[in-house]
């Protein structure tokens, strides 16, 4: 399968600060590729360079064989962009927004109208298309925001954290529509800081942190990096000292890593069940109350933890 997107050593500096530090990856035609990383990792900056909005400080990328720096117009016809923050005219109706943006993508006449109808159907707003966007709920606005990116049937769709800040139902609908679009042949570059979304959607995942791509591969490939290890997740009381508990757990034989986040301590071990008893004993000794315990198979969260020593969401 040919690569529709080839990114080579992409760098972006904002003044002295380097937000993206030489990122390289490819996306194959037909894939869903996720860029997974915490806030401030450089996801939006990367997408902005790939969508020809920002000029890279270094490196380049080719989309459908066209350089984003040298042939931006050719690139813009191939890509669709769903920006992280809503980018709509709130005083126009959903339909008027779609018509306007369709025109900006060169659609007109019957084609434009039928595409607008199709997209309204797709985002489930056909019956409320004549209301001003201003009057919509957050989830509905997000759906219009996505719809705008679909009008010209792009070969490659960039979606920058499209589910941030919306209700679970709308989120479900969006994830399902991403899968649908992909089934119809659209290649998708999806960014998120939700491990579950990357896990559910992607064929391959790139993990990005502090502007660097620290891991790249299928989920199976990535989780193998953590080995066959399992994660024991301890939920403790609000007032308890997670840091101190994590430190003391590191001493237990069989524990490979113990990390504290808010009211949780993640303990990585080859066999979670083997360390379960000593972990509980240790907590009791320190007088720390454990509310519940989960055992997790290796997942992307564990990969991130393993690579950075930090949790994905802080």
């Amino acid at each position: 399968m040919p690569a529709i997107l080839e990114v080579k050593e992409l760098v972006k500096k904002y003044g002295d600060f380097t937000a993206v530090k030489g990122v390289s990856f490819d996306i194959q035609e037909g894939e869903i590729f996720s860029l997974l990383g915490p806030n401030g990792a450089g996801k939006t900056t990367t997408i902005s360079m790939l969508s020809t909005l920002y000029i890279p400080t270094g490196g380049d990328a080719a989309i459908g064989g066209h350089s984003v720096t040298k042939e931006p117009m050719a690139v813009r016809n191939i890509i669709g962009v769903v920006p992280q923050d809503l980018a709509l005219y709130e005083d126009l109706t959903a339909r008027e927004n779609l018509v306007f943006w369709g025109q900006m993508y060169g659609l007109s006449g019957k084609t434009l109208n039928s595409r607008v109808d199709e997209v309204l159907e797709q985002i489930g707003l056909a019956d409320r298309a004549k209301e001003r966007v201003k009057a919509y709920s957050g989830g509905m606005k997000r759906r219009v925001n996505i719809g705008v990116g679909l009008l010209h049937k792009p070969r490659l769709l960039f979606m920058d954290e499209p589910t941030v800040g919306i209700d679970p139902q709308s989120r479900r609908a969006i994830l399902d529509s991403v899968k649908d679009l992909n089934k119809q042949g659209m290649t998708v570059l999806y960014t998120t800081h939700y491990m579950e979304e990357a896990a559910e959607l992607s064929d391959r995942v790139g993990i990005i942190d502090h502007g660097e791509l620290i891991a790249l591969g299928t989920q199976a490939e990535l989780t193998r990096q953590v080995g066959e290890n399992e994660t024991l997740l301890l939920h403790i009381g609000e007032d308890e000292d997670a840091e101190a508990l994590a430190k003391s757990l590191k001493g237990i034989p069989g524990v490979l890593q113990a990390t504290a986040t808010d009211h949780e301590v993640s303990v990585i071990a080859r066999e979670a069940e083997e360390i379960l008893a000593p972990v509980v004993t240790k907590a009791n000794e320190r007088g720390i109350k454990i509310n519940s315990i989960d055992i997790r198979e290796p997942n992307l969260e564990a990969v991130f933890l393993h690579l950075t020593g930090r949790a994905l969401r802080d």
Binding site: T52, L53, M73, I79, V81, W101, Y105
Partner: peptide, 10 residues
């Protein structure tokens, strides 16, 4: 964000 959006359209 509508200006950036215009600028990434053709």
């Amino acid at each position: 964000g509508t200006l950036p959006r215009l600028l990434v359209s053709p």
